[in-house]
Nucleic acid binder design. Structure first.
Lengths: 132, 132
DNA sequence: ATTAATAGTTACTTTTGGTAACTCAAAATT
DNA sequence: AATTTTGAGTTACCAAAAGTAACTATTAAT
């Protein structure tokens, strides 16, 4: 009974286990979920991935509906995790440039995949919602 | 100057645009981000993907630290979007079974990829955090 | 007779997210 | 010359979301 479906199931069980197992207090998968699952992190990474180096207000304008406070918080968190690099130029008015680190770019590739799935399947999801 | 790096950049710009563009009031990518980016949706999908059909309390025990209220809310949302199917058996005590729909399984595959990335890169992220 | 199990719901509290106003100094506008 | 704008934030406040604890009904087990 070692068919492919069962092997797939085993693989997913393994992933669930990883998604739930803590090692010295931290679960890697949950930790990443927590990092990217706030409202603005993914969009910020998309913006920096798409346009390269950007200044604070350039990101803000690209995203459109993010507040200064939330963009600040988001960028600080991404910086802390080493996904985004922050360069301050001692000028007036201030000039701060952001860009993705190699780690940030590797996450971007995952998010691009996810974005592709969203594009392909959003019509089905919206249809399901309306059917309720 | 049409090198591969530039092509990649174009591709990411395209993705950012998709991640930000609204069509009749809804942005597909943001919509999906909003759906899966609550704390419990991804873990619930992982659990159902890994173990197949599960009852309410089985999911709760697998995840461990989700409250009844939040698991109920999460499952209802996933059901509304057509990612999870809910079957009620008219028994006492009540019996309700959940499992992923084909749409849910297709999302699971994306989340498994993301989980893999998390596994591979969490050590680097934790190291970056400590370096602050 | 009391306790446990199932799948929730309800009321309440805490945490997180969002809004608006404010900062500073220089450059541009009136 | 005086006001406004720009840039990158910060601070105080308020709304929304998430978490906690207690409660529901019915049956089977202790």
């Amino acid at each position: 009974m070692e068919n492919t479906a069962f092997k797939e199931q085993k693989k997913f069980q393994d992933i669930f286990w990883k998604a739930n197992e803590t090692r010295n207090g931290i679960c890697p998968v949950r930790d990443i979920i927590a990092r990217i699952s706030d409202k603005w992190s993914m969009l910020t990474i998309y913006a920096l991935g798409g346009y390269g180096t950007l200044r604070f207000n350039e990101i803000k304008r690209l995203i459109g509906d993010v507040s200064q406070r939330m963009l600040t918080v988001t960028l600080r968190n991404l910086e802390t995790d080493g996904l985004v690099e922050r360069k301050v130029f001692p000028e007036v008015p201030p000039r701060v440039e952001y860009n993705l680190t190699p780690l940030g770019f590797s996450l971007l590739e995952q998010l691009v995949q996810l974005g592709g799935w969203a594009e392909q399947n959003s019509a089905a999801i919206i249809k399901n919602r309306k059917a309720q």
